[in-house]
C-alpha cells in the first residue's frame, strides 16, 4: 500500500515535469515521455511503450493526455492514471491561466519571447537525440528499412501539402497493425508445418 502511494506520487511528479517542459505538441512530447518513463525510471518496457503510443494515437484527444492516463494506469491503477493526467495538465493550466490574466503585456514582452526562443532550441536538441536513441535501440530488419523511410516520406509530403493531415498518421498506424498481424499469422503457419 505504502509503495503504491509512493508510486502515485512519483507518477504525479514525473508527469508534472513532462507537462512543464514539453513544447512542440503530441509526438514531440512522446519523445520526452519515452526518455523519462522508459529510460530513466524503467516503469514500462520499450515494447509496452509502443503499445501505449499506438493506443494513444488511435483514440480521441491529445496524445500526451492519453499516454499519461495509460502509463499511470499501467503503473498504479486508476489512482495512478488520475494523478499522472493531473500532473501533465497542471503546468499548462497554471501557466496559461497566469498568461491569460496579463495576455496583452505577455505577447509584447521581448524578454519572455527571447527566453522561449532559446528553450525551443534546447527542446529540438532533446527531441533529435531521443529519436536517434529510439531508432538505435530497435530491431532493424528488412521491414524496418522499408516501412520507416516510406512512412517518413509520406508524413513529410502530407505535412507540406495539406494543412489537416492528422488522419494520415492514423491510416499509417492501421497499415502497420495489419502488416504485423499478417506477419504473425504467416509465422504461426510456418511453426505448425515444422
Amino acid at each position: 500500500m505504502k509503495e503504491k502511494i509512493l508510486n502515485c506520487l512519483k507518477l504525479f511528479i514525473v508527469f508534472l515535469k513532462i507537462g512543464a517542459f514539453s513544447f512542440g505538441g503530441g509526438y514531440a512530447m512522446i519523445g520526452i515521455i519515452q526518455n523519462e518513463i522508459v529510460e530513466k525510471r524503467k516503469w514500462i518496457r520499450q515494447s509496452e511503450f509502443f503499445e501505449v503510443v499506438v493506443i494513444a494515437e488511435s483514440t480521441p484527444g491529445p496524445i500526451s493526455v492519453n499516454v499519461a492516463t495509460y502509463v499511470g494506469y499501467k503503473v498504479a491503477g486508476i489512482l495512478g492514471s488520475s494523478l499522472a493526467t493531473i500532473g501533465l495538465v497542471l503546468p499548462s493550466f497554471v501557466i496559461i491561466f497566469i498568461i491569460s490574466l496579463f495576455y496583452d503585456d505577455f505577447i509584447k514582452n521581448e524578454y519572455v519571447m527571447k527566453a522561449f526562443s532559446g528553450i525551443k532550441c534546447g527542446i529540438m536538441v532533446l527531441l533529435l537525440t531521443t529519436v536517434i536513441k529510439l531508432a538505435k535501440k530497435m530491431e532493424r530488419g528488412l521491414y524496418f528499412y522499408l516501412a520507416f523511410p516510406i512512412a517518413l516520406i509520406i508524413m513529410i509530403l502530407f505535412s507540406i501539402f495539406l494543412s489537416d493531415f492528422s488522419w494520415i498518421s492514423l491510416i499509417l498506424i492501421i497499415i502497420g497493425l495489419i502488416f504485423g498481424i499478417i506477419n504473425t499469422a504467416l509465422s504461426n503457419k510456418k511453426v505448425k508445418k515444422v
Partner: peptide, 9 residues
C-alpha cells in the same frame, strides 16, 4: 508492425 511507423511519425 507499428513500431517503425511510430518512429517515422
Amino acid at each position: 508492425g507499428v513500431k517503425p511507423i511510430i518512429i517515422s511519425l
